[in-house]
Nucleic acid binder design. Structure first.
Lengths: 216, 216
DNA sequence: TTATAACCCGACTATTTAGTCGGGTCAAGT
DNA sequence: ACTTGACCCGACTAAATAGTCGGGTTATAA
């Protein structure tokens, strides 16, 4: 006799979530009940309140009681929205054989909200030197590093050795030297993994120097 | 007898700008006059209004008359703030020789506002294939491409050949074949530059597949 | 010494805004 | 048949909030 609580989002709830999202994107601040009411095309505030309560109960948004325009979309909300703003996202193409025509489609994707969600365990690091040149990391590039503890062979990692740090490719294989750090430049030697080494994080993005460094 | 209009921002104005910025970052929506008043440590609303008018006159922020919490920080404002939020920015390090210790410093940098400013001439492209593997672009990676017309030798570019597109390194040198596109994988041949080719933009960032593709 | 800019005070008002009250409809499950 | 969840209506109130009014101070430049 247990009622299965429907935890899925309904069509109308999703519509409101999108209205809120769109409003914030367009104006820079959240909407009022009134504005949401209008956008939903209903005549009563109560309808809005009902939907907001549902969204809040499901941890999709958060409100601050009595505070004007205090709706915040939570990470789960952004996940449901899927593909927010900022940059156009093109469908898969191929780099091996020449690809199909690329067209800027109507689909959008948020870099900001993705990064915002990482906030606490991600940082940028400016690279100098050429030891990772064959992995596309050149002098002056900035890499985005995520703090984490587990790595798989082939990950590009930030390693700390004593009081020094370095960016290298992490390799783990079943023939000597088994576990080591590999520079992506034949000019340099690989570094066997030792106890003094600590892997601090994984490189998840590379910002190319020739563009990004000028922004400052 | 002409008064030189001071277009520089004063200390107090900058303080308020930072208060607004910080409030938005912390709560997700802009502050009220009252909240700004408190944070400034003054006892009158008028003080806030004065400062806001100055900031608005200088196109640093924008308000919407009569609308609660309607302050938006304009691009110029972000520029003055210099180094917003989201990810920690570490000082220059070296990748060739092992680097100095990295510490997450107090300096912050906004990826979102940088990207937001590009909005109109930047797009993402998902790569499949392995022709650029030695430039660190692997199957499934997503690259951020900026539309532009001028390129220098060594840029990684998005080229359109007839109805197909491809990502390659652009090379221009004074020995044959002079101008060509070079795959970063010895398995593939280079492509001489022809009239049918058009360079659409330059790769300014690489989002590594193994992390970013899971976000969707 | 007069003007101006930048900043501040304290009290006030009109509007915006969140949220309630007491209902109703409709479709799906039991 | 009856309940329950999702959604809606229209009128209302209390609080939050923007913005005004009529001043004042200090420092700097003309």
């Amino acid at each position: 006799m247990i009622k299965t609580t429907k935890n899925e989002i309904t069509k109308r709830q999703k519509e409101l979530l999108f209205i809120i999202y769109q409003y914030i994107k367009d104006s820079g601040y959240p909407p009022t009940f009134e504005e949401m009411r209008e956008n939903l095309g209903v005549s009563s505030n109560q309808s809005v309140v009902d939907l907001l309560n549902k969204l809040e109960g499901k941890k999709i948004i958060k409100r601050n009681e009595g505070i004007a325009r205090s709706i915040v979309i939570l990470p789960l909300g952004y996940e449901i929205l899927g593909k927010p703003h900022l940059v156009a996202f093109l469908g898969a193409t191929s780099a091996g054989a020449p690809l199909e025509t690329v067209e800027i489609s109507g689909e959008w994707r948020s870099l900001s909200s993705d990064v915002a969600r990482l906030q606490d365990n991600v940082f940028l690091l400016k690279i100098s030197g050429d030891s990772m040149i064959n992995a596309g990391i050149e002098d002056g590039d900035i890499v985005l590093v995520k703090n984490q503890k587990e790595f798989i062979s082939g990950d590009i990692v930030l390693a700390q050795i004593g009081s020094e740090s370095t960016v290298k490719r992490f390799i783990s294989e079943d023939k000597p030297p088994y576990i080591y750090l590999k520079p992506e430049n034949p000019k340099y030697d690989l570094t066997p993994f030792t106890d003094e080494m600590e892997l601090k994080g994984k490189v998840i993005s590379i910002l190319k120097n020739n563009y990004w460094s000028s922004i400052k």
